[in-house]
Nucleic acid binder design. Structure first.
Length: 550
DNA sequence: GCCGTTTTCGGCCCGACTGTTTTCAGTCG
């Protein structure tokens, strides 16, 4: 928890410096420090006390001192001073697509705009269009951006919510006051975006449980609302609800609170949930209802109840089924670690293989590989493989799909690679037909194995590009091209719905971490959750195959 | 603000698109 808080403060410092127009390299230094700390495996307090922070790349004298201050006081003077200088709301405005720090500052300087609402009003009144460099079209785009932000509401990424929820759950499970505890609600169902964190606790002493929840360090605020409900906040902005029930009511309450609402309504039509008091698992309840146990990820009333009655539910894929990672970036492009170190980390996860798939030459900002460097990387991988038993590194590329649908490397080069992922990283706003055709062209290439992050969505930030998904799936089915579930919690792309369509057409799915750091290999769990939400089984997944089969 | 098998000062991933311009600044990936 501390690590995330420190990283968040440093990242906000970077944002505020950016609005101030400070030295861009200094800003980047803060961003990098924040990033390093966010990814840290070890507890930052311990590292600080041992004086080891300086060994972390991107942390020098200044940041180390500020971290010390944050750890002792919860904040630091530099940050507080910036907070006084820069209104909070400007950071929200910075989130509008197409508005960068320069525009945010100009709006603030000229029109005193400090919040999204003020900006919306100014746009509607036509005040923004007259500022230098802005115009009617950008004014429209800003309104559109604000609408999108408002529509999304305050949903949180599963990648943020789940670790926080798990920390609180682990803490509560250790308490003798609590007989049973589980995550519940949309976090338990594995939705990519969730409104809040829900926990279900079984206890006969709810008052004492309330006090115990309050004592958890990351809990910032709590209300004891009803005899069985505690509401509060984790960290600065994430709300949670803890529902406390008596132990015999635990499992029917778990089924009830897990939802979804539509699933629950159908399950309990002919029964009262109290009819199931005293049962010892959800499986027993489902069994009494005459159906198989339904995994939480499937509980969306999209056919799972019928399948459970018929005994035809899928045997959902598990993280343990994954035998390797097919999308990993090294420090040859925009990853931060050596191939050897990534391989060691993958191996220690129990994988049999991984593919190094650095960016191709067009993606200059991400250090895309030239043909020469790709060859050199191949030689290095051969050398590492020669020295290694029981683990294999595949040579690969995440090759850019260019505007025309052509690929960024010529066929003879792709032919020599083991794993080719083709992805879109540019021209997001093409007309739908052209965008679809572009991806279809790539999927048809005989050397392309996988289409990466198909829709290009960035959760809470950017909608996917407009494409005819069904048409692309058809081509993938015909050309034996797989689709990726990109496990990064910001992407989870393709989602469960598309994954299910892919499965129906016999298109294989690769669950990839898209790791840029060895710790990112752990993100695969979000991809597995997404695959489960798409009803996928181990046999539907490319990287559940052994190295030889693959 | 960080970093150093060219370095303790002077560098620090680049290129394209957009909307505004009439030659470019800002933004993005």
């Amino acid at each position: 928890m501390k690590n995330r808080e420190v990283a968040a403060i440093l990242a906000r410092i970077a944002d505020m410096l950016e609005i101030k127009g400070d030295n861009p390299y200094k800003i980047r230094a803060y961003r990098q420090a924040a990033e390093s700390i966010y990814r840290l495996d070890e507890d930052i307090t311990t590292l600080y006390e041992k004086g080891w922070l300086r060994n972390i790349p991107g942390i020098g004298d200044a940041v180390e001192a500020k971290i010390g201050e944050i750890l002792k006081t919860g904040s630091c003077a530099y940050y507080d001073r910036l907070m006084e200088e820069i209104p909070d709301g400007l950071l929200d405005i910075l989130a509008i697509p197409g508005l960068g720090h320069k525009s945010v500052k100009m709006l603030y300087d000229n029109l005193k705009i400090e919040t999204l609402d003020e900006l919306e009003k100014a746009c509607q009144e036509g005040k923004v269009r007259n500022l230098p460099g802005l115009g009617v079209r950008r004014e429209k785009k800003i309104i559109q951006g604000i609408n999108e932000i408002k529509q999304r509401g305050d949903k949180i990424n599963l990648g943020i919510a789940l670790p926080l929820a798990q920390e609180l759950l682990d803490y509560l499970q250790k308490s003798p006051l609590i007989e049973n505890a589980s995550l519940t609600g949309s976090v338990r169902r594995g939705k990519a975006l969730v409104g809040d964190i829900d926990l279900l606790l079984a206890s006969d002493v709810p008052q004492a449980v309330y006090q115990h929840i309050k004592a958890f360090p990351a809990v910032s605020q709590t209300d004891y609302l009803e005899p069985d409900l505690v509401k509060g906040r984790l960290g600065r902005e994430i709300e949670f609800e803890a529902i406390i029930v008596s132990p015999p009511d635990f499992y029917h309450s778990l089924l009830w609170t897990t939802g979804s609402k539509e699933h629950r309504q159908r399950i309990f039509t002919r029964f009262d949930r109290r009819d199931f008091t005293g049962l010892n698992s959800e499986a027993e309840i489902y069994s009494r209802l005459g159906m198989d146990f339904i995994a939480p990820e499937l509980r969306e009333n999209i056919g799972e109840i019928e399948a459970a009655v018929a005994g035809s539910l899928p045997q959902l894929v598990n993280e343990a089924d994954i035998k390797g990672d097919l999308h990993v970036h090294s420090n040859w492009s925009d990853g931060s670690e050596r191939i050897q170190d990534l391989a060691a980390a993958a191996r220690s996860r129990g994988y049999e293989y991984m593919a190094i798939t650095d960016h191709s030459r067009s993606l200059a900002i991400s250090g895309g590989l030239s043909l020469e460097r790709l060859q050199a990387q191949g030689k290095l991988i051969d050398a590492i493989n020669d020295e290694t038993d029981g683990f294999h590194i595949f040579k690969g590329s995440e090759v850019d799909i260019l505007k025309t649908g052509e690929l960024d490397f010529p066929d003879p080069v792709l032919k020599d690679l083991d794993v080719v992922i083709a992805s879109v990283h540019s021209h997001f706003k093409l007309e739908p037909g052209q965008q679809t055709e572009r991806i279809i062209e790539a999927a048809k290439n005989e050397h392309v194995d996988i289409i990466g992050h198909l829709t290009g969505r960035l959760l809470s930030r950017r909608s996917g590009y407009e494409i005819a998904v069904d048409d692309i799936i058809e081509v993938c089915a015909r050309c034996d091209t797989a689709l990726e579930i990109n496990s990064h919690p910001d992407r989870l792309d393709i989602d469960g719905n598309i994954a299910r369509k892919a499965k129906a057409r016999g298109v294989k799915v690769a669950i990839n971490s898209d790791a840029h750091h060895k710790k990112d290999l752990d993100l695969i769990k979000y991809g597995v959750i997404t695959a489960r939400r798409g009803w996928l089984e181990a046999k539907d997944i490319l990287n559940t195959l052994s190295r030889d089969e693959l």
